[in-house]
């Protein structure tokens, strides 16, 4: 069993009208089976309302399944005695950087998680230092988070999670509110964590460029897992992705269109370099 495993995970929420009467039941996540290996970089794709955030919140035991089970490192999220262990092992980074920074100074915010866990003072400082260094924000440790850019704030949030020494990090659209530069900064930091520290990463996003380096990609649609495979496999299926209202990277699309017109290019080209290389073969 991998670090994160779900078995027929289903989550329903009840929609109510203004008087509180039940209007209907929406199934946000529908019988999802996942098995994520320790150390993997996983990307979950999907357009708005496809259930990817709801799925993410289950891994951190913020939401509990209506049916099915979620295990994090072998612990069932529905068992209350494991709650705090699960939240420590599966850290979560949210979309809006302003709404998840609690401290008034960068280092205080990073220390918030370890403080809650009851880590001794001296070790908190060690953890804060190493996690700020891991995301390249150490020189900003005395700054106020309000004065940082979006990308920097998000890196602080990531540091705040790493300081809890999690085995995996779930990032719920961490780049959705950032500019292209901030987006690159954050993704670079996340990849470094995965490569250097071996932390399992679950990246939820709708930016295609960010998933190129993932080991495994899951595409969600209406609560189901619609596609799964390596990035190359996923991007070979351009038409299916379009049906799910997802964009593919421009260069992949270009190669796909050229192929349709009879140019002999392989499917699933992911980067510009690769494309150039293939073109030079002619």
């Amino acid at each position: 069993m991998g670090i994160i495993k779900t078995d027929k995970l289903t989550f329903e929420y009840i929609r109510r009208d203004e008087e509180g009467n039940v209007e209907g039941i929406t199934c946000a996540v529908d019988e999802v089976d996942l098995d994520i290996k320790q150390g993997d970089f996983i990307a979950i794709l999907g357009h708005n309302g496809s259930g990817k955030s709801t799925l993410a919140k289950h891994i951190n035991a913020i939401l509990y399944p209506t049916e099915g089970t979620v295990w994090v490192d072998g612990m069932d999220t529905q068992e209350e005695k494991h709650l705090w262990d699960i939240r420590q092992e599966a850290g979560m980074v949210f979309q809006n950087p302003d709404n998840q920074i609690i401290g008034q100074v960068v280092e205080e915010d990073v220390g918030f998680g370890p403080e809650n866990m009851g880590v001794p003072t001296k070790e908190i400082w060690e953890r804060v230092e190493e996690s700020l260094k891991a995301v390249g924000m150490y020189e900003y440790r005395k700054h106020s988070p309000n004065k940082l850019s979006g990308g920097q704030k998000q890196r602080v949030s990531i540091a705040g999670v790493i300081a809890m020494h999690p085995k995996c990090i779930i990032l719920d659209e961490p780049t959705a509110m950032l500019d292209p530069n901030g987006r690159k900064e954050v993704i670079r930091a996340v990849r470094a964590l995965n490569d250097v520290e071996g932390i399992t990463v679950v990246l939820i996003t709708h930016y295609m460029e960010e998933i190129i380096h993932a080991d495994m990609v899951y595409v969600m649609d209406q609560g189901h897992i619609a596609m799964e495979g390596t990035p190359r496999e996923i991007f070979s299926r351009v038409d299916e992705l379009k049906e799910l209202r997802l964009d593919v990277p421009q260069v992949t699309l270009l190669a796909h269109e050229l192929r349709k017109k009879g140019v002999n290019l392989p499917e699933g080209i992911l980067t510009i370099e690769e494309f150039v290389e293939q073109c030079l073969l002619f």
């Binding site: 913020i62 949210f94 709404n99 918030f112 809650n116």
Partner: peptide, 11 residues
């Protein structure tokens, strides 16, 4: 959002 973020960080 903040309450959720705090809970996620074991508060």
């Amino acid at each position: 959002d903040l309450a959720m973020a705090m809970e996620a960080r074991c508060y």
